[in-house]
Design a protein around this nucleic acid. Structure first.
Length: 465
RNA sequence: UCCUCCUUAGCUCAGUUGGUUAGAGCAUCUGACUGUUAAUCAGAGGGUCGCUAGUUCAAGUCUAGCAGGGGGAGCCA
């Protein structure tokens, strides 16, 4: 019973009850001192800050003190006292120390000195014990919680879209196959292709690339819904902004048009950033100091400004008139490149931008066509440093128009019969968008590589841990 | 996938026009020190220079291939 009692370090650091007995448990960050007095900094993940434990060296067994190295897990029972030293206001005067687990300093890879983020990726199983990943993981948690809170408060319902899908029509990228067939000797059809009728599901199945289509089905009953789950892309993308496995938030709203959709996206993002500032300021200040001196300023600026809204056509005009030399030339009908998006967000407007009215040729089949016959009601939210953080659209609710696009893009009708049914029975104008969770975390933490904002990144050639 | 750069001690990095026994800081170990703040001071140990082949009297250094990683680009969230 004694062993289960514990005071969280985050609470002890705030406490003013000097003289009271406390029990702190956690992992040793540093130990320093001399023959007579030992200082141990320990952290239990409850906060970025460590608690300092002071131990009278003569009062403890020498072998016990030798086991207290960086990385060891210990429990300390002691008295909360006002600190004599400069670096902290409270500390624990140790009466009893128990070592739960040693960390042999000859082989334990983490040191009290800083490590490169690249090195830490190779020891992703231990990197949560660093200040940086502790901060990132706490912020990641806070953002996941805030997402659910926001939508719950707004009357949205959380829908669990399937991870395994038989639908191949989402068009969002290459997919991973899911199969239980014998990889050395799969059943074959007479034409030499694999006979998926004999597979687990009786058909070919993949990991989902998006929960959007399923979210649309739910929105046609519950009006306001969202998904929040893992999605998978088998693209050979090697960039600091892409993962093969990432989490996506996809709200879908019946009775919303593209304007309502933009309003929601802007309000939602600002809420999340404000939530981080209100609830994670210690972690943000650490990241601001160590990685990105502009981080907190940038978060405040994004909240303070109204996002700039303009059409693709207006954006192309601005880019053409800018006189900039582009690596990829700009003209109406081509997709905007990173350099163009960066120019609009970081140079021309100096704040987040929402672009709408893209040419239909460069967007997905389900997007609502405008009356001009050339553009669709798509919207991309572009953020400084990140680029596209949200992609969304008003959906095509008209059955004939949707069928026309499906045929133009050679999507087999039989693959999406269930989706088309929603346009046959009680169709309604509706809209939605997708927010890449890790891109949000990149923006909020100021980290620059997406592999450092997810516990175990999945990228081409890397599925360790 | 394309372009480009990188790979030297446990970590972070130096290493000159190719030339004896490959260096530093931190970490580790030993010792000193009665309040430290990534403690400090003194000493010690620690390296198949990513792998393979080649050029050369001589390769950490030059060349090629391969592997891993970073940055940029494309695909997108």
């Amino acid at each position: 019973m004694e062993h289960t009692r514990r005071n969280k370090i985050v609470d002890v650091l705030k406490s003013k009850e000097f003289g009271k007995e406390v029990v702190v448990k956690g992992w040793v960050r540093t130990k320093r001192g001399n023959k007579s007095v030992i200082f141990i900094s320990m952290n239990d993940g409850s906060a970025i800050h460590n608690i300092q434990v002071v131990a009278d060296a003569t009062g403890f067994d020498e072998d016990l003190l030798k086991q207290i190295n960086t990385g060891a897990c210990i429990a300390v029972t002691g008295t909360l006292v006002e600190s004599v030293g400069q670096g902290q206001s409270v500390e624990v005067q140790a009466k009893q120390i128990e070592v739960y687990g040693i960390a042999d300093p000859l082989v334990f890879p983490l040191q009290k000195k800083g490590h490169s983020l690249e090195f830490l990726r190779e020891i992703a199983h231990l990197r949560p014990r660093t200040n940086t990943f502790g901060a990132v993981l706490r912020i990641r948690h806070a953002m996941a919680f805030a997402i659910h809170k926001y939508f719950n408060d707004q009357g949205f319902f959380y829908i669990h879209a399937p991870i395994i899908t038989g639908s191949d029509a989402e068009g969002a990228g290459a997919m991973f196959r899911v199969t239980t067939l014998d990889d050395k000797n799969p059943p074959l059809l007479p034409d030499g292709h694999v006979d998926y009728a004999q597979d687990f599901f009786g058909k070919e199945t993949k990991l989902t690339v998006s929960g959007q289509l399923e979210a649309e089905l739910a929105a046609m009953a519950l009006s306001l819904v969202y998904t929040f789950g893992p999605t998978f892309r088998a693209e050979n993308s090697n960039t600091p902004r892409h993962l093969a496995e990432f989490w996506m938030i996809e709200p879908e709203m019946a009775f919303y048009d593209i304007g309502d959709n933009m309003d929601l996206a802007e309000n939602f993002l600002k809420y999340l950033i404000q939530y981080a500032l209100d609830n994670c300021i210690d972690d943000l200040e650490f990241l601001n100091k160590m990685y990105d001196n502009e981080l907190i300023n940038r978060l405040r600026e994004v909240i303070g400004d109204k996002f700039e809204r303009l059409t693709y056509t207006e954006a192309v005009d601005i880019l053409v008139a800018s006189g900039q030399q582009w690596e990829f030339p700009v003209s109406w009908g081509t997709d905007l490149q990173s350099e163009h998006e960066r120019y609009l967000v970081e140079k021309h407007f100096g704040k987040p931008v929402i672009l709408t009215g893209y040419p239909k040729e460069i967007k997905a089949f389900y997007m609502k066509q405008n009356e001009d016959g050339k553009t669709v009601r798509a919207m991309d939210v572009l953020f400084p440093k990140i680029g596209e953080i949200i992609g969304g659209s008003q959906r095509e609710e008209n059955l004939e128009a949707l069928l026309r696009r499906i045929h133009e893009m050679n999507i087999p009708e039989k693959d999406v019969w269930w989706y088309l049914d929603t346009r046959r029975f009680g169709t309604v104008p509706h809209a939605g968008f997708g927010l890449g969770f890790e891109r949000l975390i990149l923006f909020v933490t100021g980290m620059s590589n997406i592999r450092d904002v997810i516990p175990f990144p999945r990228t081409p050639k890397n599925a360790e841990f």
